[in-house]
Design a protein around this nucleic acid. Structure first.
Lengths: 131, 131, 131, 131
DNA sequence: GTGGTCTAGACCACT
DNA sequence: GTGGTCTAGACCACG
C-alpha cells in the first residue's frame, strides 16, 4: 500500500497517516486480520520518527480499527469492532456540519455537494452506484 | 446572533468562531453588508482573548467572507466575493474525503451518509427539499 | 497535594501519577474546576520528563476526569463527566476478579477481604461508615 | 480446565495464564498435588510461546503455588504453602487501592462495590453466602 | 506561558 | 524482533 504524506501540511503527520490507513481499510486494500508493518519499519519507509507511527497506531487501536499484539505487531480488526454507532453519528455530524455550512455559503448547490461525496465514495470503491 | 464556544474542545477557538460566523452567513442570519461586532466587543462578549477574534476576522477576510474597514469595522461581503470556484472544490474534497472514508469503514451506508448531510443542510435553512 | 512516585517500581510512572490524581479527586483534595499544575511545572516538581506528565494528562482527559484548555492548562471536570456506567462496571470486575481469586486461593476470608476494602475506602475519606 | 487468553489485551499473556491457574486453584478445579500440563504441552495447546508458559510457571513457583519437579513436572502445592500473610495483605491493599479510588471517584457506592466483589466471590465458588 | 507535535536515542518487557 | 516507556530538546499553535 502506498502512503503519501505531506510533511509541510498543517495536518499532523500522525493524523495523515491515520487517515491513510483508514482509507486503506475502506477501499479493502487493507483486509481484516492483515498485519500492518512494524512501527520501526513503517517509520523507516516513510522517513519519519517511530514515535509518530506509534501515536497513529495507538489512536487506531483506541478507535477499534486495529489490535496491537505484543511482538506480532498491529493487525486490522474485523469490521464489527468499529461499526458505526449512535455516538459516531454525532461525531460525524459535528465534523460535516461546518463543511456543509461553508459550501452553502459559497453557493454550492446541495446536489453538487452530494455529487462530490459520491465521487469520493466511488473512488474509494463503494458499491453504491455501480448497479 | 448566539455564538456557542466550547473552550475545552480540541478545535481552536478562533476556528470555532470562524465556523459560527460562516454558519451565520449560510443561514442568512448574517446578511451581506451587515456589520460584525468590533474585535474588542466580541472578545468581551465571548470572554475570550482579543487576539483570538482578530485571527478569526483576518482569516474570514482572506477567505473573502468579510471586509475590514478602518471606520466601520468588519462587514459581511456580498456573496459573489466568495462563490465556490474550482479551487474551493478541491479543498472541499480534501476535507470530506477522510470523513467519507471513515464512515465507509464503519459500515455506514452511503444513503445514510447523505441523509445526515441532508439533515444538516435542512437545519441550516437550505431550500433544497422544501418544495 | 503531595505526590509520591516510585521510580523503580514496575508500574509505569505515568500510571502511578494517574492513580495519584484520581485518588486526589476521590479524597476531594482535588476539586472540580480546580487547575492542575502545567505539564512543565509538575514534571519539574517531580523531576520527571514533561512527556510523561503529558501522557498522564492525556489519558485522564480521555477518561473524562479532566479537560485540557489551551493555554489554561488542565482542569478537573465535574463528577458527572465520569460517573460509573455499565461499561465501567465491566472494567471494574475484570480488574478485581484476579485479585479476589488470589485472595481466596490464599485462604483469606471474604469478610477480611471486605474489611481491607473498607479500610481503604475510609482512608480515602468515604462517608460510608462514619455514621 | 479451559483457559481463555486474549492475545490482543494489554495484559501480558504470561500474566493472564497465571491468573487463570490461580483462579483454577481458587475454584478447586485444580487440586493440591495435581499435575499441571508440561510447559511444551500447554504452550502447544494454547498456541503460545514455550517461554511464556515457562515464565508463568516460574512465577507461580516463586509465589508458592506450585512446585516444579524434574520428572513429574509442575504440581499444585498444598494450601499451607501460600496462606495469606501480612506481606500479602500489603500487596493486596496496594493492588486494590487505586481501583477503590477510581470507583469512588466515579460515584460508585461502596455497597455496590462490595456487591460486585461478592458476585465474583460467589462465581468462583466461595462458601461465603451459601448458608 | 500553555499544550501539541516531531525527532532522537535509550532501555526494557514480551514472545 | 516487537511494542512500551522514559528522557531530552526543539519548534509551533494557541490565547
Amino acid at each position: 500500500m502506498i502512503i503519501k504524506l505531506n510533511l509541510s501540511s498543517d495536518i499532523p503527520i500522525y493524523q495523515q497517516l491515520k487517515e491513510s490507513i483508514i482509507e486503506g481499510i475502506a477501499t479493502g486494500e487493507l483486509q481484516p486480520n492483515e498485519e500492518l508493518p512494524s512501527v520501526r519499519r513503517l517509520a523507516s519507509d516513510l522517513s519519519i520518527n517511530l514515535h509518530t507511527v506509534n501515536k497513529t497506531y495507538t489512536q487506531l487501536k483506541n478507535a477499534g480499527f486495529i489490535s496491537i499484539h505484543r511482538s506480532r505487531g498491529a493487525i486490522i480488526n474485523p469490521p464489527d469492532c468499529y461499526q458505526a454507532d449512535e455516538n459516531y453519528k454525532k461525531v460525524l455530524v459535528d465534523a460535516i456540519r461546518p463543511i456543509v455550512a461553508e459550501s452553502m455559503c459559497r453557493g454550492l448547490e446541495f446536489d453538487e455537494f452530494i455529487e462530490q461525496c459520491n465521487k469520493i465514495y466511488s473512488s474509494l470503491g463503494g458499491k453504491h452506484n455501480e448497479s
